[in-house]
Write a protein that binds this DNA or RNA. Sequence first.
DNA 1: CATGAATGAGGGTTCATTCAT
DNA 2: AATGAATGAACCCTCATTCAT
Lengths: 212, 212, 212, 212
Amino acid sequence: MNRDSGNGPGVQPLRERVRRATRAAILEAAEAVFSARGFGAARMEEIAEQAGVAVGTLYNYFDDRSALLLAVLEESARELEERLGDPALLAEGPFVQQLERFFAKVLEHQQAHFRLFAILVQEELEQGRLPARPVRRPALLKPMHRLAEQLVASGVRQGALRAEDADLYPTFLVAMLRGLFTRQLCARGAPPEVAEAPRLARFFLHGAGGHR
Amino acid sequence: MNRDSGNGPGVQPLRERVRRATRAAILEAAEAVFSARGFGAARMEEIAEQAGVAVGTLYNYFDDRSALLLAVLEESARELEERLGDPALLAEGPFVQQLERFFAKVLEHQQAHFRLFAILVQEELEQGRLPARPVRRPALLKPMHRLAEQLVASGVRQGALRAEDADLYPTFLVAMLRGLFTRQLCARGAPPEVAEAPRLARFFLHGAGGHR
Amino acid sequence: MNRDSGNGPGVQPLRERVRRATRAAILEAAEAVFSARGFGAARMEEIAEQAGVAVGTLYNYFDDRSALLLAVLEESARELEERLGDPALLAEGPFVQQLERFFAKVLEHQQAHFRLFAILVQEELEQGRLPARPVRRPALLKPMHRLAEQLVASGVRQGALRAEDADLYPTFLVAMLRGLFTRQLCARGAPPEVAEAPRLARFFLHGAGGHR
Amino acid sequence: MNRDSGNGPGVQPLRERVRRATRAAILEAAEAVFSARGFGAARMEEIAEQAGVAVGTLYNYFDDRSALLLAVLEESARELEERLGDPALLAEGPFVQQLERFFAKVLEHQQAHFRLFAILVQEELEQGRLPARPVRRPALLKPMHRLAEQLVASGVRQGALRAEDADLYPTFLVAMLRGLFTRQLCARGAPPEVAEAPRLARFFLHGAGGHR
DNA sequence: CATGAATGAGGGTTCATTCAT
DNA sequence: AATGAATGAACCCTCATTCAT
């Protein structure tokens, strides 16, 4: 409004900022609706309503429903990756602390996005489907799996983990997180506390067996 | 009354046999299609085709799409329950063997119904949704959870399991099975081998920690 | 059973009697269901159930749904005609008595078949429709109209009725019966009493005007 | 704010006008199709065709088939009420003139909407049915009945009508109109002329009896 | 660009009719 | 001739997508 109110380089940023804000509002609304209804049952109209725009506007930002879905998933995956990308995570200290930090990070993310996380968990299995219209799904929990693998490799290198079943450990790391998440969500409607991280680590390292 | 024996108890059983066969064919086709497409995307027409009947026939056996879905789920739950109902499972021997038998039984079931099992796992999370039209879903994996709880309780009683995190153990038992299942299904398109049971048991009892 | 129990002229009547009984049962059931649901909403299966036969059997007696409907209507028309065919109706006595007997007869019929009568009344208007599949409907209330016309003609001949609006009188005779019927049915769920006949006759002869 | 006058209050009214026009087109088409086919046999597709819109559009304006039907009926009832709401109808002059005006008004309405009027008449009886899914129908001919009752009450007060059968008079007023209507429609495919009003009034006041 | 009404293919469901037993 | 399961055309309705304003 101050200067460059014409067509100069000052207007473009304004337009650009509005565009970004609209896009963000749509993505947020889409996440909310996908989370509440599930991917299959989420309707474009409800997303538009929630975002405060007209349905047509959705199509100005995303090619179609699939693209919107994909964008939501990618956005979430990107955010999880960011959270887990902290190099300090693996860097230092005894293995048990690395492990606890890993669990804590994922639990934090579950807290922040637990509804959508539920969908991600669910959708992981959707991979095996023959879709009516084939749809590319990103590997959503890939960052988590990748980090789990790095963690296990690191643990084995340090001699903190036995090597014999090492192929299963990443799977179990993720499975425990998912299992706890599902249990809490079904039982209390809320994701697990970050404070559960040490118990997860203890089980992962020593199992449930009695003789310690 | 006697002469009717070729007409009463002779003909009726035929009709009845055909009915049962048709019903079974529909359920099987429905399981296949629900598994391949997911619950939301399964179309009645495809189920009918797969079953080798007309669409209308589906409605002679099941009230509507929901009822068919429910019947498939109940059938599967019933079968899993049957499989896990074997009292020998918990009865005798050292705890590690009980544990291995439990894992083996569930892995067997996954082998038999792996496609549908994928859906069951997926649907467990569907519980938290706000459905458009509310739908009663049976607690499909309940039998598995229940048995896991019994197993843990038994292990704690025998001193084979530490009591401190016992509230988490059933969740982890199931989560490990689910995690392994998902990994195999995504990686190879096939469920895990029953032979994995001892490795599952080992991890559950001793964890991944290195000092044995 | 006594003689001719073979293939002779004694067996045919038995078969014939059974056929007639079945046919009658179907017609009765059809009347009931048509009356309860309306012609459009009456389903063949419900008719079969009510008649105590299988659906297929309906088609052994009637070509299709339309034919069954037609048969019900014709049956009812025949019965009304029979009731109104009594020659004593027009034969003797002062006109007002003829009139009262006419009203009483129709009211009787309404009592006996009031549900179906409601349909007949309703269907009279269906004539003007463009049917999806053209269907021949019999002139169901024709007997009633015909008798009304005879009655009016007789009244005019006797000098009991003014001639000037005589073309309208049969219409009004029937309309009054129908109006009373509809009113009672809607208000009380029951057809009018036969005892209303004199009031109908009085209105028809003298109108509602005050100066007598 | 001022410049928007081509965009705010200028564009909105356009959309609004189009909406109203579309809604009106749908209602008109629906009246035509309901009238031509009857309520049960009217198909949404035909209504859409007749209105020049797609099927989906019908559902942008009305919740479902029932709601559309209801809207048509209410619209018609509203219009009849408007037509009969003229206070001059009962206000002045000798009773016979009030009566003739009443008949004339209803005959006018029959002229304007004779097809739908046929349905209204028919549907009045539908009330007594056990519907598959219960459906609220508005009291469509209520305005006509109500006015008939007022007219009779007024006539009795003025001493123009005998009080003894006054409970039947409104029924007969309506019945005569309906009877005449049905007769003309069946016989000529057209509703009765407004010019019939005096004959209706004469019969209502004096009946058909000969001695004047 | 935003808007939101129009579109119409697609899916669930019903039910008159057929036909093998 | 009776049976009743199978059939599939026909209908209502949904909702992703388009496009004129």
